[in-house]
Design a protein around this nucleic acid. Structure first.
Length: 122
RNA sequence: GGAGUUCGCCGGACAGUCGCUGCCGCGUUUUGCGCGGGGGAGGAAAGUCCGGGCUCUAUAGGGCAGGGUGCCAGAUAACGUCUGGGCGGCGCGAGCCGACGGAAAGUGCAACAGAAAGUAAACCGCCUAAGUACCUUCGGGUACCGGUAAGGGUGAAACGGUGCGGUAAGAGCGCACCGCGUGGGUGGCAACACUCCACGGCGAUGGUAAACCCCACUCGGAGCAAGACCAAAUAGGGACCCUUAAGGUGCGGCCCGCACCGGGUCCGGGUAGGUCGCUGGAGGUGUAUGGUGACGUACAUCCUAGAUGAAUGACUGUCUACGACAGAACCCGGCUUACAGGCGAACUCCUCAC
């Protein structure tokens, strides 16, 4: 069972998808370098989208690295997450973090997101 | 061996596990999946500073305004790039650097210092004693007037230099050499050089044109979110033909000019979303050949990212420790800037040895 794939179904693909999350934020996970916004999507799996602006992470190489590591972590932890649309917003300084710091940060965010989701669904 | 100059190249590799995305083949076929194979960021992909292709606007046309370039010749699709040459500067040298047209068309500008900064100019100094005045030991002395750009001083810069003659003192005032200008000659396609000849004493013609300006050449505008097609919703258009008086709109500055709005005939329209544009090209490599060279020509051979909320990644191990700057977004040619570490070639200078 190939349970750790990352097909297109797990991404937010359209501008409309992004808008609906921004307009119906039910879960917020703020951190110093990152901000997660999420809303239930009515599907059987979570979806993810990235908003990493040039303003917050100047170099394209660093933007790519942040997105790739966050996405990899999402792929490996997707079954621990509730069925929500998640937006990952970058904050200043995110591009300066090392690889292992990003991995730790991602794990922390997922567990906080899970707890908040359980609370709000009760 | 040391110091240096120029040019070229590399920009982690290998293995395993889990993933992503085009392409090809097979299977399935609700056109989405599954399996296998193979491809998947750079030397600057960057800054967006130039030049082109491509697309739409008129096959981009005339004038004005405005911008760009600026020694000469060539290369090129084109250029602000490149090559060769000239001139000037730097370096012992290999080499390197230069917005390098015009100030004898006009306008403007130059702080401070200085007498004077351009129709040049007497502050000190030097000279003169004819004239006027004063003093006098009756020889003369001094001031004014006058001559003088050789000397001092100021300045970033003071309008040819050195020597001899000359002179009251001086001065291209005269002469020699050097420099400069004009005309001719010779060499060169030319920029320019030679100094072969003649002429000009040189206050002719100072500097500044990344000040206006003049001259020569050159540039229409917008950009792949260009633009074309398929198409829910909503809504009132679209295509073709004919015609055009006025006015309006568009062609991104203005004028000319051009197109549309008018009439007729025919046809469903085109936002979300999707498809194309989208990578085979002024392409790479090799050989031959023309050229000093940039580059051209011929033949052979290769196909080398094409995403679209946006793929090329994560983890682990090994390699004398592994790493800088940095991520394609229509495509090419350049320029500029960033860059850990490393490799190669040619040449120059110094030292030693033979």
């Amino acid at each position: 069972m190939a349970e750790f794939e990352y097909p297109r179904q797990l991404r937010i693909l359209t501008g409309g998808g992004f808008k609906s999350v921004f307009n119906n934020v039910t879960l917020k996970v703020p951190d110093q370098h990152i901000l997660l916004l999420a809303t239930p999507n009515g599907l059987s799996h979570p979806r993810i989208g990235f908003v990493i602006s040039k303003k917050n992470v100047r170099r394209a190489v660093k933007r790519n690295r942040v997105r790739r590591i966050m996405r990899e972590s999402f792929r490996l932890n997707q079954h621990q997450l509730p069925a929500v649309d998640i937006l990952v917003l970058a904050r200043p300084g995110l591009g300066e973090l090392e690889k292992d710091e990003l991995h730790r940060l991602a794990k922390k965010c997922w567990s906080r997101l899970r707890k908040k989701a359980q609370k709000s669904l009760k």
